[in-house]
Each structure stands twice: as C-alpha cells, then as structure tokens.
Design a protein around this nucleic acid. Structure first.
Length: 804
RNA sequence: GCCCGGGUGGCGGAAUCGGUAUACGCAGCGGACUUAAAAUCCGCGGCUCGCAAAGGGUAUGUGGGUUCGAGUCCCACCCCGGGCACCA
C-alpha cells in the first residue's frame, strides 16, 4: 500500500482518491437507526442558491461536518443533509440578469454549489438534498399555511409596502435607492395593502419558559441562547388598570415599579387592540391612519424622531391622580410590543426624550444607566426583573416610597411581534387561497395541494408576472364553484424555513407520498428533534419562529410527539468570516475565494484553517497566515508519518528473520551508524543493536501520557464544538510526537524497536484524531498504517460494529 | 439611538480558575543547502537605555478600583466592527 502513496503531500491527488472512495461506498448515507444506537440529526443552515459557495459557508459546514464525522466515528447514527433555500428576490434578480427563468437559474446555481461542496469533502447525504422551490417541498409550506390558518394562527391585516407606480410593482428595501426605484429611478411611494400575518403571540410565553430548559440542558451554546432572549425581548415589570373620568379603562405596564408617582404620560402602541377607543377625534384618527399606513421610516426609530400622536385624552396618575396625557406611538412596539405603558421620564431615558418633546413638567430627571426598559436583558432572564418594590431602596425611587396601589400586579411584556408572511413576488410558494366574489378568501382544500407555480415565469422587474398569468389566476371557487381568482401573493422564504428543517428526515423515495402518510413515518419521527443546529448567528429570528411554529404544530397534532415543542435539542450559532476587520463584500474588494484556496492548498487545509483561526462564537478575521500554518502542519504530518512508517518497515524487513520476538530488546553496545540528521533511519540491512539498558522507557511513557491526554481533551472539545481548541491540541500532539523522537535520538543513535513501535502507534492515533478535521489525509494515513480500507475510521477507544 | 462583539508587537493572533504577557504563524534579519534563485530546514526578533554583553526601565485602547499578584474581575470613558424585521 505504502508504495502507491507519494511521500510528498499532494492534497489534490489524495482528496480525489478519497472522495471517489466515499462515493463508491456511499459513505454518508443516512443509516437506519438500530436499537439503543444514539441518533443525531445535525442540521446545517440552508444556503441560498446564490451561485457560489463563499468562505462563510466553508466555515459553517466545516464545523457541522467535523461534528458529524466525529459522531459517526463514535458509532452514532448520523443524519447530515440539507436543502437549498431557492425562493426569493435574489433569484428573481439573477434570472432577470441572465435572461433565464428563475427555476433554471436556481437549479444551475444549486448544481454548481453542490460541486463545490463535494470538492470540499463535506459528508452530506446528498440523496436527501433538495431545493425549497421543488413542488414536493413547497407543498409543505402550503400545508403549513392552511393548517395554521385553520387554527387562527394566520390572519389578514393591512400593512405598508414600497410601490413603484411606473413599474407597477412592490419593491424590497434593497430595490429602493435614495427613495427611487432601482430600475426606472422614479420616486417610490408607500401604499397600503392587505397582507397575511403569522400570529406568534400565543406561543411566545412558552418560548420564554422553555429557554431555561434549553439553558439547563447544556447543549445550547450560550451565545445562541442570548440571541433567543434578544429576539424574545422580555421585560419584567408591573401592570395596573387606569380608569378615565368617562369610565374607559386601560391596562398599563411599566418596568419601573418603584417610580409610579413619577409617571408623566401614557403611551399606546398603534397596534394595541383597544387603541381606537382613545382616538375619538377625527383629526387624531386621521393621524393614526397615516401612521399605520406609512409605517416606520428607518431613520425615525429613535426617540427624537419617532412619531407621537397626542390623543387629547388623559388618564389619572396611579399615585397622585393627576391627569396624564395619552399618546399613541410606535416607540412602544419596539420596546414592549403592542401594549400600553406608563412614561416615567425620571427613570427612563427614552421617556425623558419624549417628555422633552412634549414639554412636560418633569421632576429631577435621574436617568439610570441601566435603562431597564430596553429589552437588553439578555443576561439573566430576571435582569430587568423587579417584583413590585424590589428596587424600593434605590435612591431614585424615594418619591413614592410605597403607597400601596390597588390592582398592582407583576407582569411581563415581550417585544417579539407578529410578522407579515406574504410578498408580492412571483418566485415564491403560491399562497393556497382563492378569492371568490361570493365566498371571499377561500382556502384551497388540502387534497388539492400543491398549488403549482408556473415554471416558465420570466420576471422583468415590472408588474407581477404571476398575476399576469391567466392560466394561474383563473379558477373555480372551491366552495361555490363560481368563477374566482387565485391569491397572487407568494409566501416569504422565511415562512418556507419554518418547515424546511424537517424534509431532510424523509428519505427521498418517500417524499412523493401523501402528506399525512409522511407525517406518520417512523423515519420522520426518530430523527426529531434535531440534535444540533449549526448555523450563522444571523439565524436567531428564524430559529425563534421555528420554535414557535413547532409548538403550534405540537398543539395542533402533527408534531405531538415533540412534547416540549422544541425543534433543536442543541444549537450553535457561529459568527461570520470577515477580513481586515470588515464584512467581506465585492464593493470593498476583500472577498476570499474558496476555489482559489482549494486549488492552492486542498480541502483539508482550507477546512482546518477555518476551524483553527477562531472559536466559532467569534468573528473570524481572515488572514492567510492561518492557511499557511495549517498547510504546513498537514504537510509535516503527512511526510513525517510516511517517513517514519518507511523506516519502521525497513527495520522489520531487516530484523524479521533473525529476531525471535518483535519486542526483543537484547543486544549490547550502541551502533554508531546513525547520521546526525535523519538518524531514525535504519541503516541498510544492518540491524540496530539495542542498548543494554532501556534508557528511553520514560520517554515512551511520557508519549503515552501525552496521547491519552490529547484524546481526552479533543473528545471533550468536539462534544462542545470547540473546534479551534481541538485543532490546537492536535498540533500540540504532533509537536510532542516529534519531540519524542528528538529526545530519543539525543540519547541513542537510533530508535529501538519499542521506540519505533511507540512512534508508529502515536502517529496512527494522530491520523485517527484528524479524521473529523482533515478527513482525506486522515483516511489515507489510516490505511497506510495498515488499517482496513473503505470503512468508517473509529474514534480512539471505540469499536464500531462491522456493517455489511 | 438601541442590542451584540472586539481593542495585546510591523501583521493575524495565543495566554484553562486571577499566577513567568506576546505561544503559534506571517513578514523581517542571520545561517545551512545551492553555480544561482526558488523551495525547504535551523537560529534571532515587544519597545526603550546600553557598541555589545550583563543589567535596568517600560508595555495588553484611556482613567480609576479590588488583590500579595490583573490582558483576565469591578466602575467610568474612548475607539472599531456587526445587527436593528420585504436580502437571506
């Protein structure tokens, strides 16, 4: 075997050989789970079909793949597969630019990216990959839409969108340049439209509650938890009911339970269910309507700019009875959700700014740095927590030491809001709704799914190509049979993502079956929940909403087997790859091209470098020095291993005949043939004479201790996905192995048989430990060291069952 | 404005529980090998005073604090990056 392998490290040849072998033995096929075998569904992020893998993908999948390979080596059943997120605006723009249909564009992109990912050696089960734009996939989005709609978790409401009159189309934020259309440069206007919304509020408190369980489980990474807390936006405080002179009451909230006497106004969210009761004046109502239709300008979010409407009504202060003006402002939404709050300028920075705009008389403004109102309580969940009176000793709360106010009760508010899921675009999942003049909005019956999206759409940027297709739009009403029109809005990709973590659990050959049969599949159930999600830190919102919808589907029934309604048992959000301290972008010219790196150094080096350069939770500031370091490391491991192996083989050839046992350590008088440099060489056919006394046993013991420590440490680090430390320990182990040889040779001219055996054993262990990190090199060395080819290399100390 | 990260040599960055700051690599300098170059290997490198050696002084964004001891913990501040819901 070893003659076939060049001692020079040639990653291109090695990687081509290994990848061919993996394909031949279908190495990453998802196994059927055996009784008692741990199963792990490792969920990578779903890349958008942009056309190219970028270095951030390499980082993300290197972490996930290392964990997947480690898990297989320990004998776990592993499901590691993904799908492309193929719907969305960039696909339309790509199709416009290339003159293709979006479906052709995304399938070209997916094919190219798949080739890049295979070249990188990621161990995905490719038989399970998919595009979210496949009808077999998006019918699930339609099923989900109808299911949630039937349980009142989807509703219609109005919202505002950017509209270009000239192009007769809705524009996304990135299509608006300085207030003008990207295509025709005419001014953009905001218009009101009916939209579909996802109601998350019913499950938000449970998402909060479960967060503590996830934290206790220990397999949710701390920064992932923090991001979930941030999206949740929990604020603890108190609430009470205020009654206006005319009898109308309003429940108001505040986090500043100890400063009620310093309340100076009441602010209501424009989305508060009872807001209209407080805007009786037609002029004020008009302002409210305008506020709702215009939405929030990006630069008008801060307290100095944000719209305020004075309703002219007042409510009595909870402690003094003084009248407090009642305002309507979206400033409430961004901090506490669609609720009503007390404005306490003396304690709250934002409230102080608003009071200043209203020229309200305020007591001494003592704004504490803590500003508990901001939902920044990402630390401990009770960071802003204060049961009434908890902070009463605070010097700023002296005004109303403790007049007990009736009806005061602890309360919680969440910033997480319902969101719009419909888009006026042609390249998306069609919303399964038919609009009938007689019956209104009628859901398409489940058995008629999927509502197929025409594949030959040619978007131009103007109008809505889907709405212009009579063959799509004109249908009979499912209820009355009369003539009707299909909904021409499509679902936002965010909505597709709510289900898309599940299809990888369904074997490809089962995917065409009726939906209810797939939901009953054992295959589907045994892999859920996913053992670990590995995704970019920008996925926080997606994951939050996946957690919401999983709970909804548990309650409705399809996912009832997930008792806690959590899709991911564990989660790691990694940070992005940057360069020169900046996010990579073509504009800045600081993009790293994975293809070039692959051509120069090979996949093992590139993967190892992304793992080594920074801990996953930190941004990786790209520098070539990490690649050079890793390349040198792998080169040296390769050459040192094969050279040592060749010497050991020479030794056994030379000694094979005359020495009785391979551990024979007899012999006297050191032979002085070793040369000063590669002294480990066994000189020709002259057998080395072993020294009379074993002067290197302590070194072998030390080496063995080092090996044991490395296995222990690296195993722990892989379990907690601390890849950067694991790589450092691999490098350290290699240094120690080299050091062992150096020290032995400082004492005697050549390695004894026992030294040689110990060296080969340590190098074999190193090859084994490298498996999850540099899988191509690892497997070639593992075979070179005489182990069985074409099987999964086991983790040290693990014996894998022989699979037929 | 708000949220989350960061700030250590010429550069990327190490430093487990608060215990020899600057591991490892890049660049640089010196050497080996070579006709030469490239590649590879070995050695030396925080700054500063000192011809040099020996030996001092000083240093982890800034200013305080806790401690026998702080890159690490606490308080205040400065600067940089990322995010802030029709991009995914």
């Amino acid at each position: 075997m070893s003659e076939q392998i060049s001692k020079r490290y040639d990653p291109q040849a090695i990687e081509a050989r290994r990848q061919a072998a993996w394909r031949a033995r279908d190495a990453f096929q998802t196994p059927a789970v055996a009784d008692g075998q741990p199963r792990k569904y490792i969920k990578p992020s779903a890349p958008f079909t942009s056309g190219n893998i970028h270095i951030g993908h390499v980082r993300s999948y290197s972490i996930g793949d290392t964990y997947a390979r480690f898990s297989r080596a320990r004998g776990d059943a592993v499901l590691f597969a993904f799908g492309f997120d193929a719907f969305g605006l960039p696909a339309e723009l790509g199709a416009i630019a290339s003159g293709e249909s979006p479906s052709a564009w995304v399938s070209d992109c997916a094919a190219h990216m798949t080739g890049q990912l295979e070249r990188l050696g990621f161990s995905f089960d490719w038989s399970r990959s998919f595009l979210s734009s496949d009808a077999l996939m998006y019918r699930w989005s339609q099923w989900l839409f109808l299911t949630l709609l039937a349980h009142d978790l989807i509703y219609r409401d109005t919202g505002s969108v950017d509209w270009c009159e000239h192009c007769a189309t809705t524009l996304a934020t990135i299509q608006v340049e300085d207030g003008r259309c990207w295509r025709c440069h005419n001014p953009v206007q905001l218009i009101q439209r009916t939209q579909w919304y996802l109601r998350i509020s019913a499950h938000v408190p449970e998402n909060d509650l479960r967060l503590q369980e996830l934290a206790d489980s220990g397999i949710w990474d701390e920064s992932s938890l923090a991001s979930q807390r941030f999206v949740l936006g929990r604020v603890d405080g108190i609430e009470l009911d205020l009654a206006a002179p005319d009898g109308a009451t309003l429940t108001v909230f505040t986090p500043h339970s100890d400063a009620l006497g310093q309340a100076r106004f009441v602010a209501i969210s424009p989305r508060h269910p009872e807001v209209e009761r407080w805007v009786s004046d037609p002029a004020v109502f008009e302002q409210l309507e305008e506020l709702r239709s215009v939405g929030l300008e990006r630069d008008a979010r801060n307290a100095e700019e944000i719209p305020l409407i004075d309703t002219g009504h007042t409510l009595p202060s909870p402690s003094t009875g003084e009248p407090l003006p009642v305002l309507v402002s979206p400033v409430v939404d961004g901090r506490f959700g669609a609720t009503a709050v007390l404005g306490i300028p003396a304690r709250d920075h934002t409230d102080a700014l608003i009071a200043a705009r209203l020229s309200l008389q305020v007591d001494d403004v003592v704004v504490s740095g803590g500003d508990a109102g901001e939902a920044g309580s990402t630390g401990e969940s009770d960071g802003a927590g204060m049961n009434s009176g908890k902070d009463a000793g605070d010097s700023t709360g002296e005004h109303d030491a403790a007049p007990l106010i009736e009806g005061l009760r602890p309360a919680v508010r969440y910033r997480a809001n319902d969101f719009s899921i419909s888009r006026q675009r042609s390249w998306g999942t069609p919303i399964p709704i038919v609009h009938c003049d007689a019956c209104g909005a009628v859901p398409v019956p489940f058995e008629q799914l999927p509502v197929l999206l025409p594949l030959d759409l040619k978007p131009t940027g103007a109008g809505n190509p889907l709405a212009e297709r009579a063959d799509f739009v004109q249908v009979d009403c499912p209820r009355c049979g009369g003539s009707a029109q299909r909904e021409t809005d499509t679902l936002d990709c965010h909505f597709d993502a709510l289900w898309l973590w599940i299809p990888a659990c369904v074997p490809a050959e089962q995917r065409g079956r009726p939906l209810e049969e797939i939901l009953a599949l054992d295959d589907l159930r045994q892999w859920l929940p996913s053992e670990r999600l590995v995704a970019g830190s920008d996925s926080g919102n997606f994951v939050f909403d996946q957690r919401i919808v999983t709970k909804a589907l548990r309650d409705i029934g399809p996912l009832a087997f997930l008792a806690d309604g959590e899709p991911f048992a564990g989660c790691l959000f990694h940070e992005m790859v940057i360069r020169d301290g900046r996010k990579m972008s073509k504009h800045l010219g600081n993009v790293v091209d994975p293809d070039e790196l692959l051509a120069s150094y090979g996949a093992d080096t590139v993967r190892l470098a992304t793992l080594y350069a920074a801990r996953p939770q930190r941004s990786l500031n790209w520098s070539d020095s990490a690649v050079l370091r890793c390349h040198r490391f792998l080169t040296q491991v390769w050459e040192f291993s094969l050279t040592s192996l060749a010497r050991a083989e020479l030794r056994s050839v030379a000694e094979g005949a005359d020495s009785e046992g391979c551990d024979s350590e007899g012999g006297e008088g050191a032979d002085s043939e070793g040369d000063s440099k590669g002294a480990g060489a066994v000189a020709g056919s002259t057998a080395e004479r072993e020294p009379a006394r074993d002067t290197t046993e302590h070194l072998r013991l030390k080496l063995s201790t080092w090996c044991g420590a490395a296995v222990e440490k690296i195993t722990e680090e892989l379990e907690s996905l601390e890849m950067h430390s694991a790589v450092r320990n691999l490098m350290r182990l290699f240094d120690r192995i080299k050091d062992f040889e150096k020290r032995v040779l400082a004492r005697q001219p050549a390695l004894s048989q026992a030294d040689s055996d110990a060296l080969i054993e340590a190098l074999t262990l190193l090859a084994q430990l490298l498996g999850p990190f540099a899988p191509h090199l690892s497997e070639e060395l593992w075979i070179a060291f005489g182990n069985e080819a074409d099987t999964q290399t086991p983790w040290p100390g693990v014996s894998l069952p022989v699979t037929a």
